[in-house]
Amino acid sequence: MFMQLLFGLSALLTLSGAIAVLVTKNIMHACIFLLASLIGIAGLYATLGADFVAVTQIMVYVGGIVILMIFAVMLTGGKDFVSRAQNLLGLAPSMGNKWTYTVGLLVSLVFLLTNVKLISSIVKSHPAKTFGNEFPSTVNQLGHLLIKDHVLAFELSSVLLLGALVGAAMIARPRKQ
């Protein structure tokens, strides 16, 4: 019962948040709806039994990305950046005209078909599981995988992040006259 409830609420939050991001005309509100959608995705991960990934989702997106987005929106004009379009196509702020919409539709169709093709093999080989009230722990398995099998990718990504950090510090530091 917990799982069905959790799944229903998370799915509702994810979908309604995502739709609200598209529909709203205020970019600050869009950030908050995105936050709701991302929390919903964390709930979906929890439903799948991936507790660590769920918490990491909240940690990274709520604590980091959304706050950074709000900072960026405020530094670039905040709520003055509001769409004034009246028709349906111009509802989403600065998304272009009907040609860009047509191209976008075609591209998303191609992506959809590719993804369905990719996922179908996984779905066929792994039949749907039903979970009880127990959350299986994934922390130990994830730790072993990260440190043993995927240690190279793990270390390389940390070097990449360090590079980004040093680059940001270089750009932001005050210039000596």
Binding site: M28, I32, L35, D51, F52, V55, T56, I58, M59, V62, G63, V66, I67, I70, M74, G78, F135, S137, T138, V139
Partner: peptide, 25 residues
């Protein structure tokens, strides 16, 4: 008693940061 208890606590309490910022904005 979640397996990711402390991590969950740190993650979810960052909502307060968003709230403080939104209250100010």
């Amino acid at each position: 008693d979640l397996n990711v208890g402390v991590f969950y606590l740190i993650a979810i309490s960052s909502l307060v940061g968003v709230a403080v910022f939104l209250g100010g904005y």
